[in-house]
Design a protein around this nucleic acid. Structure first.
Length: 271
DNA sequence: ACTTCGACCTGTTGGC
DNA sequence: TGCCAACAGGTCGAAG
């Protein structure tokens, strides 16, 4: 489900509702996720307050004075602010209940997401330690991408979706950025010129920033923490449009699979 | 060191 | 209408 814009949208939605709020109780209804929700989460958070909400790639980091709650939404995860009395549904895994009667509710039908509790320094957590730069930061530029791509045979789309290269670029926005930049997603990353990376970088940044501004992309079920959809779907030029007309040249868009992910592009506009 | 692929899950969709 | 295969916003970890 969520790529960086959807995670950022979620972060902005929950942040004002949970910052400096004391946790009354942690209810773990269904601990089975990618990794089991640890029992230490309840003991660690109860009675303490969330001090800061950070995002690193697609991970949300809810920091308290006692430790950090690390959350990943996987493919189908979401976080909402609800009244704590609201009856839980089938796939509602965890409630972080606050003193004011509100709760942060984590829902995830496919269970590819995770909630982990980390007492020590969060930066050194194995899931975070090897992540690449943030795509919207200055560290992510054409020199960097050119340098790390040398000798790599992977398709450029697969390459930019690799979180060790850059975080947060998933299947939707990789396809959209490559279309905007006019680059064929199949091209070997290691053979792409510096000049072409100079074209690609601002496209990735612009696509992600636009999507954040519009509250993310709602395909089937993504909503923000208040239950509203994102409006970036209407800006999609290639994702999910295989066989339809290219918005630029009107030829039919090609759909292939790259790295087990469906990939749509225009053979005419993307070289 | 890098690439590929299976695995993890449930829900929805499209073809017959 | 029903059934079933294919597919879905991610990514870890094993195997090559």
């Amino acid at each position: 489900m969520p790529e960086l814009p959807e995670v950022e949208t979620t972060k902005r939605g929950i942040e004002p509702h949970i910052t400096n709020k004391r946790v009354k109780e942690v209810i773990i209804r269904q601990k089975r996720l990618r990794w089991d929700v640890p029992n230490s989460l309840s003991a660690g958070l109860t009675g303490h307050s969330i001090t800061t909400v950070n995002r690193r790639g697609k991970y949300l980091l809810l920091e308290s004075t006692k430790g950090t709650l690390l959350i990943h939404l996987g493919m189908s995860g979401s976080l909402r602010i609800v009244n704590s009395e609201l009856v839980a549904d089938k796939h509602d895994h965890v409630d972080i209940v606050f003193d004011n009667g509100k709760a942060l509710r984590f829902t995830d039908p496919r269970r590819f997401g995770c909630l982990l509790w980390e007492q020590d320094t969060i930066e050194s957590h194995p899931l975070l330690a090897n992540l690449g730069p943030e795509p919207l930061s200055e560290d992510f530029d054409s020199s960097y991408l050119y340098k790390v791509s040398r000798g790599r045979s992977a398709a450029i789309k697969t390459f930019v979706m690799n979180s060790k290269v850059v975080v947060g670029v998933g299947n939707i926005y990789a396809a959209e950025a490559l279309f905007m930049a006019g680059i064929n997603p199949k091209r070997a990353a290691g053979k792409v010129s510096k000049a072409t990376y100079e074209k690609l970088i601002p496209c990735i940044k612009e696509i992600l920033q636009n999507a954040i501004n519009l509250g993310g992309t709602t395909l089937r079920d993504f909503t923000n923490s208040s239950g509203e959809p994102g409006y970036f779907k209407q800006s999609l030029n290639v994702y999910g449009r295989g066989g339809e007309e290219c918005v630029q040249c009107k030829r039919l868009l090609t759909e292939i699979r790259l790295g087990q992910r469906s990939t749509v592009y225009c053979k005419n506009c993307q070289k």
